[in-house]
Write a protein that binds this DNA or RNA. Structure first.
Length: 523
DNA sequence: GGCAAGTTGGCCGG
DNA sequence: CCGGCCAACTTGCC
């Protein structure tokens, strides 16, 4: 039997390692590659202009590549559960293929679509290619629960083996006997949207630093895989958050939209590592892909993963409702140049280094402003090209010491942290040119500069650039105590039965224990 | 009991 | 002046 097929692109905006697309081409007469632009989607999540532009780039590139296979991309406007049944009838569809997406709202949407397909007699083929592994399998192997530590995650993976190899991209051979019926009105009806159509003002766009698309992704991948020594010695915590050009690969936006397959990246790294000494997870580049997998698994296994309430792994904290603090942070006017420079880079370029995310996330939440991580999550969702539901929620919980990471007394200093990798403040001067003329000595703390120095620099603190929004040394100490209180509330069983702990120590108290205790007391 | 990607700032010894 | 150690201090897992 030959089929009329829709391949539904959602994430996975690529031809390489796309098993669902290959499946669509098998025994196929007419192929319709579809992307559904859901105008209602932005209702619950705000998407910034840079993210829209990246998506447009990725769609254009996809359409280009499909043309080379004598096909085209159909961008369809509407809600999937309304649009797909129409298309099933109109195109006499017998088969629907797509890539598995494990985000909760996607799972719900796809459940609905499966029902509709069944009603229309449409066969559905789903393939896993967005993640390295079948995440359900990982949860099964861990006795039905998502692993909560990276070490545990790695232990589970040892039993599962390496990820599958990527599937080669389709060729004209795959398209033998397959056609994509297009009319003259294709552009008009199924064309790729413009920023205008998406309600974005192109005039407001900053210069594009990271163009979207599979070709761009593969070019970038090649460029980095050529640097073999760099790849083999890569250790994420050693890279700089405030380098003038990125100290890491910036492949994350491409992986987020599926312009680059994580499995392709994984096996390209394996090829570079082959026979050489190389860094290891969690800090290596393989380790980065595993962190992604780790948070994807947690996001699938933990209910309400993007919220504090109803999230069983998340510490419940009495965050302040402070719109002024939140706005200052979002709009890069906290008065801390390091923080404001990072937030400026985020808004302009759509990407900031992982450790820069640490600095601003800690500052917004447990470090200084005591604003809920959910608010920060929303801002990142809007502005980050690589904003990914699972990673965004997981990392915000990590940084706010709400889950995964618990050493809340480790607070990043908005002054000291940046200095370690950028003594002269060049990064600050790049993104906050207003402060360009401040002497090095004051670049991280311009409010400490004498009036005459501020005048000389042409920038008066309190007038041209804000005074610091909080006193970091004071507020961060207070906040540590607030975190301590939140943690204490968390486990009432230790409150009720302190005897348990005493009982445990009673018998086996060693000399070393006693020494440690004494030391602590005297300190 | 010890260890875990990603702190800071103070103190001590060289 | 620099590197190293320590305290501040938690949970999950081995």
């Amino acid at each position: 039997m030959t089929h009329n097929c829709i391949h539904w692109f959602r994430k996975g905006l690529r031809l390489h390692d796309n098993p669902a697309l290959i499946a669509a081409m098998r025994d196929c007469k007419q192929l319709y590659p579809v992307f559904i632009l859901d105008p209602w989607y932005p209702n619950n999540t705000k998407i910034g202009i840079n993210r829209w532009r990246f998506l447009i780039g990725a769609l254009k590139d996809l359409d280009c590549s499909l043309r080379e296979l004598n096909s085209r991309l159909f961008v369809v406007r509407g809600k999937p559960d309304e649009v797909l049944p129409e298309l099933f009838n109109k195109w006499k569809i017998t088969r629907l293929t797509f890539e598995v997406d494990t985000e909760p709202h996607s799972l719900q949407r796809d459940e609905e679509v499966l029902k509709l397909a069944r009603d229309h007699g449409v066969e559905v083929i789903q393939k896993i290619s967005h993640t390295l592994y079948n995440l359900e399998r990982i949860i099964d192997e861990n006795h039905g629960k998502a692993p909560l530590t990276y070490v545990r995650f790695q232990t589970v993976l040892k039993g599962v083996g390496p990820p599958k190899r990527p599937v080669p991209p389709p060729t004209l051979g795959n398209m033998k006997g397959v056609s994509t019926p297009c009319t003259d009105k294709h552009e008009e009806k199924y064309g790729i949207p413009t920023l205008d159509e998406l309600g974005q003002d192109p005039q407001l766009a900053c210069p594009e630093v990271y163009p979207g698309g599979e070709q761009e992704a593969l070019k970038r991948l090649d460029e980095y895989m050529d640097k073999q020594a760099w790849v083999c010695s890569f250790e994420k915590p050693q890279t700089s958050p405030n380098a003038l050009s990125p100290s890491t690969t910036v492949l994350s936006p491409y992986i987020r939209f599926g312009c680059l397959s994580a499995r392709t990246f994984w096996w390209r790294l394996s090829a570079v590592y082959q026979g050489k000494k190389h860094s290891q997870p969690p800090v290596s580049l393989h380790g980065q892909l595993l962190w992604r997998e780790f948070f994807y698994t947690a996001a699938l296994g933990v209910p309400n993963f993007n919220k504090m309430e109803g999230n069983p792994v998340c510490v419940q904290v009495d965050w302040d409702n402070n719109p002024d603090h939140l706005a200052a942070w979002r709009e890069a006017r906290t008065g801390f140049p390091f923080i404001d420079a990072i937030m400026t880079q985020l808004r302009q370029e759509g990407w900031i280094h992982h450790l820069a995310r640490h600095a601003v996330a800690c500052f917004l939440t447990r470090g200084d402003l005591w604003v809920s991580w959910e608010e920060g999550q929303k801002v990142f969702e809007e502005l980050l090209l690589d904003a990914d539901w699972a990673l965004n929620a997981g990392n915000w919980q990590w940084l706010s010491a709400s889950a995964f990471f618990h050493q809340y007394y480790r607070v990043y200093s908005p002054i000291a942290f940046g200095k370690k990798t950028d003594k002269h403040g060049d990064y600050i001067k790049k993104y906050l040119p207003l402060l360009k003329k401040f002497p090095e000595q004051y670049i991280y703390e311009p409010w400490k500069a004498p009036r005459s120095v501020q005048e000389q620099a042409g920038c008066i603190v309190g007038k041209d650039y804000p005074r610091p929004i909080v006193e970091h040394e004071v507020i961060s100490k207070k906040n540590i105590q607030r975190m301590k209180a939140a943690y204490a509330k968390r486990s009432p069983q230790t409150d009720e039965s302190p005897a348990k702990e005493k009982g445990k120590k009673h018998k086996g108290e060693s000399i070393k224990d006693m020494l440690t205790k004494k030391k602590k007391k005297s300190a």
